[in-house]
Design a protein around this nucleic acid. Structure first.
Lengths: 200, 200
DNA sequence: TTACAAACCAAGCGCTTGCTTGGTAGGTTT
DNA sequence: AAACCTACCAAGCAAGCGCTTGGTTTGTAA
């Protein structure tokens, strides 16, 4: 019921990360988890941020870890969907690669910056079961990448095995959260071009 | 006194990370910090690992954070020294780059693996003062890289600005800790070659 | 108006945490 | 043998943690 209402309301904004109590809670938690880390963020921190008593959080989530899990699930789902749409209708495989890199950079330094950083740095704070569940979602995301890279490989456009190149790309893009400045001289399009040139 | 003795004894092994109580303590802490994270690792965990009572740790270090700081300082100093030695006597700038990449990969997936992972993932657990102090040491390490990359740029051997390429390399190499398997098919030399080819 | 459920508060419980304290064993120096 | 120092133990304290509980407000629908 509550979930369906949020899902229906989601447009360009991440599912359930908007006006609803649950949404504001997840946004605040994502930012706090990124800035302080999951372990150093107390439920009292999160509660203060959204104007609640700490105990009231547990009306929305059973445990603190469930909040972290929700943040990760939402951002993966949201970005997987956006990535699929980004290559819809593109034929040229290299153009697809450009779109993938450009979008992934946008995910990491743009609107889902907080949650994406959390996804990388707070992974081990998830329980094994939640790690497994989240990994399954990440696999869908990675499948999009591997499809395109294998298309490039089939046409002889890349020199290395797809899965190795994907790992190098993951390193390059995910690290941008540590240095890239949206207000700086280097644009995202320029950076995309630089990265794609390292691939093919 | 104690420090000097350890320094004198250090050969291929990281300074103060060997036989001494302090050394065993730092090794154990590095492994625990990597596996569980700094915050989830209790002083009781560390103490148990080296066969001490938890309170006895504070005879060697004033605070738990000081242990983390020491792990980071030791590994940066150690690897900066090894990196400098690695390019000693090499003239060809591209050969220097190969040596840098090869060594950095070795640092990350090899003998200093635990501490290097800690360096990346537990950074924010340091106090601002300790962050600043550690950053100064990292700057020395980075200077070695930038010297070589600027040498390549001066000879027109690379297409992008040195500092940008360094950031892409940092991403590629540091991410290897998440996937590279020393026992796998891909060798470190092969991976070095693949990465260097993305640069020049 | 009444009924009811979702959303929230105020208070605090039980536990774990980093760290302190006062004291002791053993080796080295004087 | 006296003095000293490093390394350690046993015990525990104060603070902060995630989470629970019992009750109250608020919005909606009959």
């Amino acid at each position: 019921m509550k979930t369906d209402k949020n899902k229906a309301a989601s447009g360009l904004v991440m599912h359930g990360m908007d006006e609803s109590p649950r949404g504001k809670l997840l946004s605040a938690a994502a930012r706090l988890f990124r800035d302080q880390g999951f372990d150093r963020t107390t439920v009292r921190d999160i509660a203060r941020e959204v104007g609640l008593q700490s105990g009231s959080l547990f009306h929305h989530f059973a445990t603190k870890e469930e909040i972290l899990h929700a943040v990760m699930v939402e951002v993966i789902r949201f970005n997987t969907h956006r990535l699929q749409e980004a290559i819809q209708g593109i034929d040229c495989p290299r153009a697809k690669l450009v779109a993938l890199v450009r979008n992934e950079l946008q995910f990491i330094v743009g609107d889902t910056r907080e949650a994406m950083t959390v996804l990388v740095y707070e992974w081990r704070c998830l329980s094994p079961e939640n790690q497994k569940a989240t990994l399954a979602l990440r696999a869908e995301y990675e499948a999009i990448w591997l499809d395109v890279l294998e298309e490039l490989a089939a046409k002889g456009l890349i020199a290395e095995q797809p899965f190795i190149l994907r790992r190098l790309i993951t390193g390059m893009t995910s690290w941008t959260n540590a240095w890239f400045d949206q207000a700086g001289d280097l644009t995202l399009d320029e950076l995309t071009d630089i990265i794609v040139k390292r691939i093919c």
